[in-house]
């Protein structure tokens, strides 16, 4: 196992595991805050994949730049998302996503 950390497959699997965890978190948890965090997890796992693949192609840095933009977008998303959480909390006095079922009506 001397290749630990130097082959792409391990990064991919790690990233897959992180993504799955994020996915499960988003699906299972009803707390909007935790759901947002789960989304962050998923984004991070994607970043990891991008950077890992970029490591294979040393000629350019597009993967890393892309990851950089993803981080920027994630930051923006969290800002807006948390604002929505606050507004939602004001409306329903709760941060449970079960309460957010207005779409149905």
């Amino acid at each position: 196992m001397s290749s630990l950390g130097y082959v792409i497959e391990q990064y991919i699997m790690l990233s897959g595991a992180l993504f799955t965890l994020g996915c499960i978190g988003f699906l299972v948890r009803r707390n909007v805050l935790v759901q947002l965090m789960s989304i962050e997890l998923m984004l991070n796992s994607v970043n990891l994949t991008l950077v890992a693949y970029n490591r294979m192609h040393t000629g350019d840095l597009n993967g890393q730049v892309f990851a950089f933009f993803i981080i920027a977008v994630a930051a923006a998303e969290v800002a807006v998302g948390l604002a929505i959480v606050l507004a939602f909390y004001r409306l329903k006095s709760s941060v449970q996503s079960d309460e957010a079922d207005q779409l149905r009506h």
């Binding site: 699906l27 996503s97 079960d98 957010a100 079922d101 779409l103 149905r104 009506h105």
Partner: peptide
């Protein structure tokens, strides 16, 4: 099928 909950939709997506 339309529960109105985001998580249901996300689960179907997954």
């Amino acid at each position: 099928m339309q529960t109105g909950r985001v998580q249901t939709y996300a689960a179907v997506m997954v």
